[in-house]
């Protein structure tokens, strides 16, 4: 898993470099990010330097002039490097990230919170609760629990 992730991001990077030589230098060299939730807008076509997203096939970084891509997100941390150099982090439970032609990145997620908003203890107790139900005979309960475990395990490494 780790190796393939590393390999993928390497491959992406080389692609990125090769594309970069063809790009027109001036205007297209910025990445525009829209990070939208149903109930809030966190970024609305704002210029950023780099965005790292947790894709379903492994984490990857997006810079300006990334190839257009449609990627489903798994629960994990989105980290955004703003043009000022500051980094902002959001934990998302899932969603989609799409890079459009022309260096626009749209991320649609259902929920996103900063890591400091989570309580590690609450995560721990809920995770224990969910793990109990994973092998439940009722398929619906087991499936819900499996999703909960997936999210909470990802959250466990993030929450402090």
């Amino acid at each position: 898993m780790f190796r393939s992730t590393a390999f993928k991001s390497l491959a992406r990077q080389s692609q990125f470099i090769s594309r970069r030589t063809y790009a027109d230098a001036a205007s297209a060299d910025v990445l525009k990010l829209s990070l939208a939730l149903p109930h809030a807008t966190l970024f609305s076509s704002e210029q950023v330097t780099q965005v790292n997203v947790p894709g379903a096939n492994g984490d990857f970084g997006i810079l300006a002039n990334h190839v257009p891509i449609i990627e489903q997100l798994r629960p994990g941390l989105i980290s955004i490097t703003e043009t000022s150099g500051q980094t902002k982090e959001f934990f998302v439970s899932g969603g989609f990230a799409t890079v459009q032609p022309g260096s626009t990145l749209s991320i649609t997620a259902i929920e996103a919170f900063e890591p400091s908003a989570f309580s590690a203890e609450a995560v721990k107790t809920q995770l224990a609760e969910a793990q109990k139900n994973v092998n439940n005979s009722d398929e619906a309960i087991a499936a819900t629990a499996a999703i909960q475990v997936e999210v909470l395990e990802a959250l466990q490494s993030v929450a402090k």
């Binding site: 829209s34 939208a36 939730l37 149903p38 109930h39 809030a40 807008t41 609305s44 257009p68 449609i70 989609f96 799409t98 459009q100 032609p101 626009t104 749209s106 991320i107 649609t108």
Partner: peptide
């Protein structure tokens, strides 16, 4: 307010279909 944020969300969602 809910309508405005929902519209931004919708626009981000539909961008891919447009392109």
């Amino acid at each position: 307010r809910a309508k405005n944020t929902a519209r931004v969300y919708d626009a981000a969602d539909r961008e891919v279909y447009k392109h």
